[in-house]
Design a protein around this nucleic acid. Sequence first.
DNA 1: CCTACCGATCGGTAGG
DNA 2: CCTACCGATCGGTAGG
Lengths: 196, 196
Amino acid sequence: MARIKTEKDVSRRDIIVKAAAELFKEKGYKAASMRDLAEQVGVEAASLYNHIKSKTELLHDVCFNVANRFFDHINELEASPTSTLEKIEALIRFHIRQMIENYEEVLVSDREWKHLSEPYLSNFHNQRRNYRKRFAGLIQKGVDEKQIKNIDPSTSVLIILHAITGIDSWHRSVKRISAEELEENMVTLFVEGMKK
Amino acid sequence: MARIKTEKDVSRRDIIVKAAAELFKEKGYKAASMRDLAEQVGVEAASLYNHIKSKTELLHDVCFNVANRFFDHINELEASPTSTLEKIEALIRFHIRQMIENYEEVLVSDREWKHLSEPYLSNFHNQRRNYRKRFAGLIQKGVDEKQIKNIDPSTSVLIILHAITGIDSWHRSVKRISAEELEENMVTLFVEGMKK
DNA sequence: CCTACCGATCGGTAGG
DNA sequence: CCTACCGATCGGTAGG
């Protein structure tokens, strides 16, 4: 008789993936051991394998969850009837919010994806380049429309994306400014900095 | 009879440290093995230990070399008779140039320092916080002098520093813009973005 | 600088 | 979900 997946199976797995994201973020993928993860979840290391296939599968899940979220957003955005500058601002705001609400997964996806194994490694790498190319395309359009200073689009994308991942320390900051303030601070620095 | 260090000893060690920086940058500290490093240097793994004490010592060397360079610079800068805005711009330009000329060491120092062991870990961590506090202090001063928009200084420092480390991909970029263009692009985005 | 080898730790499996 | 355990790989040492 085939085993039927209960809801408990699903949520148990989700707990493991979430804990893995935290652990990978804190220690890095290689330095985080399955025994660490098991301890955090409250089981023996061997028991994890009733819910997952491998350590690399955990990394895969985190990376592609994040990637899919960003792709869904940029697909929607490109189809929307807004101005180029509005699209760029929306893209920046989405990245900031993802970092605020979801920073562990986002950081793991950003920093640890190189530890993926093939064919997922190439796949992820290509998606990443595609996304950045589309982002740069929007900035190029803004330059062409003379709404944005004459800056190099792909460099700007790199700078902006890395700047946003930089706010991870904000989470641990003692005298925290609010998420709203943070977002406005960043948009000021970038969008105003780019505008003609 | 005590062994006397010849010049060849010194340069051999330097070669190992340099190769370690490249390897740590490429694979991450944990994923880079001493056997990888030995292969790159062209000896057996055991032979490395005639020149170094441990793997962690290599990381220590890279991290503190970089940290010292930045500290020397900010010390000199703070003592110089220039305006606040000039100091901030000089600081940004120094970071950019370090990334362009020296990016492997800088990136390892930035990304892998958490794998240092005590007491160096705490030491490095404190230095890092001190440096950023002084950088934020300069921005605060710029705000007080009404030369800079009313942004949160410590958030701005985070954003700026991460943005600059973001240009590491620029090294691998196909249609490279020049280092000078890159620097001007970044200064445009930041300094202009901050100015009132 | 090499050969030989160590104890520890890793991801993962067998079997219940 | 656990106990018991595997082969591989790690950083590092001994001895020459």
